[in-house]
């Protein structure tokens, strides 16, 4: 158990504290939830804008990461796993990006999330950028996959903040389906 993180004196508080996690991926190894949990590394928790920049400025950009890895930013207390109580009824929007676009897209996404630009109450759980060899994948996780008004609003905000070409394909996947077929994308 960690001590709760709070904004420092004079800092600009965020609506929610968020935690960065990092997962190096090893191609070919079966990703069971057990080894996923063992493999995921806690990076740090931020409760203010200043704390966010302090971490973010020292972290590698998704576009600079090589091989397979995932960078997660989730509300503090929510693990970036399908099985977490906040996630198990939820799902995610998936956006596939060609190489070279991930760093900017990731920054735009997490600034929108930290700034509460999605306007969907408590529905946002977190965001992930997955670095792969051929492409990068960005996803936004929410609590209630069956809430269509919310998922539509998240999709529209995501389109706006990522500023992607109109033909970009966005796919919604329920975590229950990910659990069933044991695949993330």
């Amino acid at each position: 158990e960690r001590e709760p993180v709070t904004p420092g004196p004079g800092e600009h508080a965020l609506q929610f504290a968020y935690t960065f996690w990092f997962t190096p991926r090893f191609p070919g190894r079966q990703a069971s939830s057990l080894n996923f949990e063992q493999n995921i590394k806690y990076v740090g928790t931020v409760a203010s804008v200043e704390q966010f920049w302090a971490y973010y400025s020292h972290m590698g950009r998704p576009g600079d990461l090589t091989g397979h890895s995932d960078l997660h930013l989730f509300k503090d207390g929510v693990k970036p796993m399908w099985e977490d109580p906040a996630n198990k009824e939820g799902g995610k929007w998936i956006v596939r990006l060609r190489k070279g676009l991930a760093s900017r897209a990731w920054e735009n996404l997490i600034l929108a999330m930290l700034g509460e630009q999605f306007m969907v109450g408590e529905e946002i759980c977190g965001a992930v950028v997955s670095v792969r060899f051929q492409e990068d994948i960005i996803s936004v996780w929410n609590k209630t996959a069956s809430d269509q008004a919310t998922t539509s609003r998240i999709r529209d905000t995501l389109k706006r903040v990522l500023n992607l070409p109109p033909n970009t394909i966005m796919e919604y996947k329920m975590h229950l389906d990910s659990l069933k077929d044991n695949s993330s994308f």
Partner: peptide, 21 residues
């Protein structure tokens, strides 16, 4: 309660705040 909302440019402005360690 009131939500704490930041526009992108507001967050970017705070990037170089002296409080950012």
């Amino acid at each position: 309660g009131t939500r704490i909302i930041y526009e992108r440019h507001e967050l970017l402005q705070l990037r170089n705040s002296p409080l950012t360690r």
